[in-house]
């Protein structure tokens, strides 16, 4: 496992969370400790093991691509923070 200082600015940016300088300092310390703990996994021989995917090895299920919305639109729209004339407003993506 890589032995580098946790790059908190890069990963909090990827996670889309603004951190304060105090949070950056605290999380770097905490996460370095946690990553250090993970090093114990290096001792486990997993060369012949397939990784699990999902919880219990259940088989995939598929369904027809049909609209099955059982929740009305209204309760969802009521939650929306910014609405005008029945339309939902979101911040602009491009300047």
């Amino acid at each position: 496992m890589p032995n580098k200082e946790f790059d908190i600015k890069y990963f909090s940016g990827l996670a889309r969370i603004d951190l304060t300088p105090e949070e950056e300092e605290r999380f770097t310390k905490d996460l370095n400790e946690v990553l250090d703990h993970f090093k114990e996994l290096e001792a486990v021989d997993t060369n012949e093991v397939s990784p699990m995917a999902g919880g219990t090895g259940l088989v995939n299920i598929s369904s027809e691509d049909e609209i099955g919305l059982k929740v009305g639109v209204e309760p969802l729209r009521e939650q929306f923070p910014d609405e005008k004339d029945g339309l939902l407003r979101v911040p602009k993506v491009f300047d």
Partner: peptide, 29 residues
């Protein structure tokens, strides 16, 4: 915040195999 950032890290390119895939293998064990 701590867990989201940790999760983002273990899934990120360059670390995915070392952490996430390794963990899924040990989970199988």
């Amino acid at each position: 915040k701590r867990r989201i950032i940790l999760g983002t890290f273990v899934l990120s390119a360059g670390y995915y195999d070392a952490y996430y895939i390794k963990a899924q293998k040990v989970r199988a064990l």
